[in-house]
Amino acid sequence: MSEVDIVPCALEVIVALRRRGLTPNDVLIAKELDESPYKVKRAMEEAVKQGLVERKNGSYEVTEEGFKHMLKHRELYVHDVFFHGSDRWSRVVTDWGRHWRRRHGLTGNFLRNFYRVLADLDGRVEELIPLTELKPGERGVVVSAAGGYGAVRRLAEMGLTPGIQVLVVRKAPLRGPIEVEVRGTRLALGFGLASRIAVKRV
């Protein structure tokens, strides 16, 4: 990871560590990110300069500005991974509200909830992967699902609620449906639908 890329990740780690009641210092952050403490220190110095974090007695606190920066990073990640298949489309987008609505057909109500999920996310956003990324035999915990209201709700009614563990049983070839086991039953989910379900690998 380059130092520029470390900053948003470090922000997430700091927020997560604080939530757990720990004091995030360079060493702890480096351990969480699996990077050298020296690199992290350099990145954090840059972050302090930008006013994203404050340094007190060797530990860090994310500023309001930093939190916003982190949210933007999360939004970009989710956008690229879940909506454009990692093609880094987000670099050319300027008006985000408009882009979500026009290009992806998301409603204002959905966006409100979406930002809420992003803000409440525990841990690094990179841990979120589409359900379709899991291989047969792997397990994941559902974090959230994006899509039309009917589809999201239907998924919940069939048992795919936030926090539930799913096991990927098999995947059909050529972006076909994915079969998962959830709450003791097997479900087949269309590829498009499943690729918008955010899970954390277990």
Binding site: G147, G148, Y149, G150, A151, R154, L155, M158, P177, E179, T185, R186, L187, A188, L189, G190, F191, G192, L193, A194
Partner: peptide, 11 residues
């Protein structure tokens, strides 16, 4: 609303 496939696979 057209909804993608959500189908139970019974034994």
């Amino acid at each position: 609303e057209p909804v993608g496939l959500i189908m139970e696979i019974p034994p």
